[in-house]
Nucleic acid binder design. Structure first.
Length: 427
RNA sequence: GUGGAUGUAGCUCAGUUGGUUAGAGCGCCGGAUUGUGGUUCCGGAGGUCGCGGGUUCGAGCCCCGUCUUCCACCCCA
């Protein structure tokens, strides 16, 4: 065993693992193409300042960062959105709107690893820039859902939980939350599932300075699991009513696309990132065994702050680590068995040249071809052909070479036929 | 960063109250098979038992440290 191994939280991709990765990334690309998104990429190393600007100085302890030889403070990218904001900001003026871009960057975080969470991962990022209407939110959600459907996952396997920062804001204000405590309250209610009602009320009255009455009203908001129930309870507030209407429109669009079973209204989805401004969502496995598979939403102010261009925007990120585990759990990983079109057998050393000639001719014609580096018994070579998953085996003995043919065996049926070499090489 | 658990062959694991040369299945390599595969049979390679130190006549097993992986925090992609 080597004295070296991969750094903690980093992965070696052996061929079987790589095949899974290729399947995941390939499926993402295919669905993005169906939705009309264009692929882009940026540098894996960025100025540290780019992330501090967006997320605050606390972010630095979670980054892979260092000082380069030119004295620049740099960081390996932990997320793609700042890069996107910079790139889009620089060119947005000349690109027709809406801009629909996607990327599959490898991202890095300096954090202690756990299941579904490494120090490195590949993440699909899919964003729409320059459209403020709710149709874009519905489109983004549909794309997120279809990404998972494309792997064979169904509504029995996952669900998108959808909320809206603006609706939540209106509800919190209605409940008596002071305007300047909203951000803190977001962070507190984000922990609702983990901490429970008592602890939540304690934090709301303590940290956020809410009255007992307001804290109780805030917690009560999250008892409503349906859009209609929220409308019934708070619809009289005109601001709440306006936000509810937009959410209802979003759900109606998803229903029209036939995806209503995949989305669920859920006010407890807040998302930690401060920059979200509108509809936000997360995709979870229905058994609740894994971390969020995907998360995203609308961030209308970020491009102005980072990219210098005022464009409404929304997007999501979907990592390969949790998705891989979900697919493995549900038996949806592809077969990784090897396949090759031809295996060429030289019966003896005398036919070796003819065999190499045939091998290369077949490869030039576009076939995948394998052969043994050592000439062994025919049985041995046949065994190797079988192990490599050869569809057909071409046997060249003295008779065949003399006649300009190959004895071609179709492995699945066992059927054999003498075929002129010329015919085999025809494209 | 904090707390807890974990580690034996490429993989999944066994290994008795501390006792000679650490085992199995799968996988890998070779042979049975000098013109025909998947099965079967036989043989082989591969481990300083995560690493370092300690206790002991003797450590895979006990103790300490450290690293790894996992779980819960923290934080969230």
């Amino acid at each position: 065993m080597s004295k070296f191994k991969a750094l903690p939280g980093f992965r070696d991709f052996y061929p079987d693992d790589f095949a899974v990765r290729a399947h995941i990334v390939g499926t993402w690309r295919e669905v993005a193409r169906r939705y009309g998104f264009q692929e882009y990429d940026g540098p894996p190393l960025e100025p540290l300042e780019l992330y501090v600007e967006k997320s605050g100085p606390e972010i630095v302890q979670q980054l892979y960062n260092f000082t380069d030889k030119g004295g620049r403070e740099v960081a390996m990218r932990p997320e793609m959105t700042p890069t996107l904001a910079r790139m889009a900001g620089a060119r947005a003026g000349g690109i027709p709107k809406p801009i629909k871009w996607f990327s599959v960057p490898q991202l890095f975080r300096y954090e202690r690893q756990q299941r579904g969470r490494l120090r490195e991962h590949f993440q699909l990022n899919l964003d729409i820039l320059g459209e403020e209407g709710v149709a874009a939110d519905a489109e983004l959600l549909a794309a997120a859902v279809d990404m998972l459907r494309a792997f064979g996952l169904t509504a029995a396997d996952f669900v998108a939980r959808v909320s809206d920062r603006r609706l939540l804001r209106a509800l919190l204000l209605h409940a008596g939350t002071p305007e300047d405590q909203l951000t803190l309250v977001y962070n507190i209610v984000d922990k609702l599932e983990r901490e429970g009602r008592e602890r939540l009320i304690a934090r709301l009255t303590g940290e956020a300075g809410l009255t007992e009455e307001a804290a109780g009203a805030v917690v009560d908001i999250f008892r409503h699991r349906e859009l209609d129930a929220v409308r019934e309870a708070y619809g009289a507030d005109p601001e709440v009513a306006a936000e509810l209407a937009r959410m209802a429109e979003c759900f109606a669009m998803l229903e029209a696309m036939g995806l209503r079973d995949y989305v669920r209204f859920d006010l407890t989805i807040v998302r930690g990132l401060a920059y979200y401004t509108g509809i936000v969502f997360e995709l979870f496995d229905t058994r609740g065994e894994l971390r969020a598979i995907c998360g995203g939403g609308r961030y209308d102010d970020l491009l102005k702050r980072v990219g210098g261009t005022d464009l409404p925007a929304l997007g999501f990120g979907m990592g390969d680590v949790v998705l891989r585990e979900l697919l493995a759990d549900r038996g949806l990983l592809p077969e990784t068995a090897r396949r090759v079109d031809f295996y060429v057998i030289a019966v003896t050393e005398a036919e070796r040249s003819a065999a190499l000639s045939l091998v290369h001719g077949l490869r030039d014609a576009g076939h995948s071809v394998e052969y043994g580096f050592r000439v062994q018994g025919v049985g041995k070579q046949m065994k190797a052909a079988s192990a490599l998953g050869a569809a057909r085996v071409a046997v060249l003995g003295a008779d065949e070479v003399a006649a300009g043919v190959a004895n071609v065996k179709t492995m699945e049926t066992g059927e054999e036929r003498r075929v002129p070499v010329e015919e085999l090489l025809r494209p």
